[in-house]
């Protein structure tokens, strides 16, 4: 069953906005941005966290942002200064955000579905140029881009 039939950009905006307002309110307001894809391409080193959904629908949910923003987010979640963060903490924080977005996406799908443990890489999300087979929603946070990609495995090229 196509995952994307159950998810819309508006749904992703709602989930991501709620996530930010709940967990990292000190980091400002997450605003939808039509330019996030382009800005992420020009930004510094990216970090991408992904969780896989399997079951009645198969796909992945990915969250991608510049490492500088990931550092700010992690500092807020750990309630420490950015200078006190190690790499593992940044990875963990971004992974947990992807896990929560993925869990909320999963809840919109018909059962049974399962969610994987997050995988975090220091690469841009494939398809973050808007060509991902699924849904790509861009945001602006503190002047930096954030992308949430919901990739539908049933739409991937054979």
């Amino acid at each position: 069953m196509p995952l994307i039939e159950h998810i819309s950009p508006a749904t992703i905006e709602e989930i991501a906005s709620q996530l930010w307002a709940s967990l990292v309110p000190a980091e400002g307001v997450l605003l939808p941005s039509a330019y996030a894809v382009e800005r992420l391409r020009r930004a510094g080193e990216p970090i991408t966290a992904a969780v896989s959904i399997t079951g009645s629908c198969d796909g992945t949910v990915e969250l991608c942002c510049p490492r500088s923003l990931a550092r700010s987010i992690a500092a807020s979640m750990f309630c420490v200064a950015e200078s006190d963060l190690d790499e593992a903490s940044i990875t963990d924080a971004v992974g947990e955000l992807a896990n929560i977005v993925g869990g909320n996406v999963k809840s919109l799908l018909p059962p049974p579905t399962a969610l994987s443990i997050p995988v975090v890489t220091t690469a841009r999300a494939a398809g973050d140029d808007g060509t991902a087979a699924g849904c790509v929603v861009g945001f602006d946070l503190l002047g930096e881009p954030v992308l949430v990609l919901v990739r539908d495995a049933s739409l991937a090229p054979a």
Binding site: M77, F78, C79, A88, S89
Partner: peptide
């Protein structure tokens, strides 16, 4: 929680 960030958030609360 397996997430250190989530443990930190809940611990702070």
């Amino acid at each position: 929680d397996d997430s250190r960030a989530m443990r930190a958030l809940l611990t702070n609360i």
